[in-house]
Amino acid sequence: MKTLSLPYYAHIYKMILIQDIKSKMSYRADFFISTIGMIFTNLSSLAAFYITFLNFPSVMGWSYHEMLFLYGFSLLALTPLQCLFDNNWSLRNFVYRGDFIKYCFRPINTYFYFISEVFDLKGLGQGAFGLVTLIYAWNKLQLPVTFLIIVQLLLALTTASLFMIAIMNFAAATCFYIINSGYVMVTANKFRDYAKYPITIFEPFFRFIFTFIIPIAFIAYYPSLLFLRTNNIPLLTWLSPLIGVVFFYLSYLFWMHGARNYTGTGS
């Protein structure tokens, strides 16, 4: 038998993804309304942001456009979570109804198989929103555009996205261990809204919390320093890809451990 290699997984992922998108397209009305809903969410959040910061030239040394940069960056970094990992929201229902076991009978990784099942199209709307915001802020801040910087940006975005994905993995997997885990998911989901603020506005204690316990500061703040504070980049910014991978891996282990734990109960 062939080894279950990366190309194999990529191929399966593509297959399932295309089918999922195809079947979503048969509910066109649903897709449009969800997308409009998503756009409204982002519009209102941007408007709130605009109204809050418009009157102030700078907050704690962060200019309006720099804040906007953080905002756009965080939206983009959260797009993979929204598009690719949305099935975590259904995990609870699968587990409580006992249907989760179907993911354990296939000759592929359980987490991969579960996550691959859903692609959330409306997340692309959010991504486009983030991209436009980021480009606008980038332009206003007159930041340079070089090949190296684009590569850095892509790398920073990819690793930043891992943090919120990992947080949601942890939150979703709590359903393997406890009843009533819906609140955990909803609460964890709110953290993404806080990612867009510079961490310097918090007291040292909460800076520590948001860096090492609930690491939302890595979603926008630390990676953005790479572009906004080029002469004073802290160590944590350089380490953030590594921390992101480790954190994601830990969340994956927690998830898989829960899955194994869960299938052990019940007849």
Binding site: I33, S34, A48
Partner: peptide, 22 residues
Amino acid sequence: TESIWGINIMKEVIVMFLSGAT
């Protein structure tokens, strides 16, 4: 429509924002 999620999220953000809750 079948899209409860979309309808609800639209309502939620519009009400939240325009009512001055945010």
